[in-house]
């Protein structure tokens, strides 16, 4: 793997201290992607609410641009997204912003629960927002569709990564995929491992700069969205999210693979 210094460093996560100072400077737009009820109870000061379900109800680029405008985000706005679901929901929202061409979006390095458990400030005020104008410059290179995946899979150097839990993977997965459960990507208090750790983990798995990497998960690209950011966090340049994921794959009756002849579910203590 090439040295860090040669890689294009993109900011994937924002640490707690930076976010707090950006909030003080009013130089950031914070998006809370939890459900509205939760947001209303309390949230990080100045955060606006965009429940993931709302975004997913129609995530066509045109609608997303409208949503983004109404949240007061233009091309220059620095955006930080957080959730309470180990960063997976936030990742899906961040990825969507990237997809319509927003460049300055990152994930809070931790979850809202951890934020609160650290005793950091939160309130229930809903900020007033002035609408802004965001351009639409689609970034198709970060999206994988079922059709794309089907043709890419056969190519040399393409790695398909399944981010669901191991048992689900064993039970059924897209042929040729490798299993990298979302839990593997995080530490106890951060949504992503430290860079060196992440790099070593991926390197052990043969996931390198030279590969094109496509991530997928169970249904809407959340767990695999987190994986997309995990790859990005160590500067892997060529990552794509199969955003409709396994749910679509199955509904299209595409081929799947299973680990045969083993009763692995019976080992689980659930």
């Amino acid at each position: 793997m090439r040295r860090l210094s040669q890689e294009k460093i993109v900011k994937t996560t924002t640490d707690i201290e930076s976010l707090r100072s950006e909030i003080r400077d009013k130089s950031v737009r914070v998006i809370d992607v939890r459900r509205e009820e939760d947001y209303k109870k309390n949230h990080i000061p100045s955060a606006i609410n965009l429940p993931l379900a709302n975004l997913l109800s129609d995530d066509s680029p045109e609608r997303v641009v409208k949503l983004v405008n109404s949240m007061g985000i233009d091309d220059e706005t620095s955006v930080v997204v957080y959730d309470d679901t180990f960063g997976a929901l936030a990742s899906r929202v961040a990825w969507t912003l990237e997809f319509i061409g927003h460049t300055d979006v990152s994930l809070l390095e931790t979850t809202f629960s951890t934020w609160k458990s650290l005793g950091l400030e939160n309130d229930n005020k809903v900020p007033e927002i002035q609408s802004r104008e965001h351009s639409l410059k689609l970034k198709p290179e970060i999206l994988a569709t079922a059709g794309y995946l089907e043709s890419a899979k056969e190519k040399e150097g393409v790695i398909l990564v399944d981010n669901r839990e191991r048992l689900n993977f064993l039970e059924q997965h897209i042929p040729g995929a490798i299993s990298l459960p979302y839990r593997t990507l995080a530490t106890q208090d951060k949504i992503l491992r430290p860079k060196e750790d992440m790099r070593r983990l991926l390197d052990n798995r043969g996931i390198s700069r030279d590969s094109e990497i496509i991530t997928y998960c169970g249904s809407v690209g959340t767990l695999s969205g987190l994986a997309y950011y995990a790859l990005k966090s160590v500067g892997l340049p060529n990552a794509k999210l199969y955003v409709r994921s396994f749910k679509e794959w199955k509904s299209l009756s595409k081929p799947t693979e299973k680990q045969e002849d083993a009763n692995y579910w019976d080992l689980s203590a659930e």
């Binding site: 839990e165 048992l167 593997t184 080992l267 659930e270």
Partner: peptide, 9 residues
């Protein structure tokens, strides 16, 4: 949780 099946034996 990270590397196995969410259970141990």
């Amino acid at each position: 949780e990270q590397f196995s099946i969410g259970s141990a034996h």
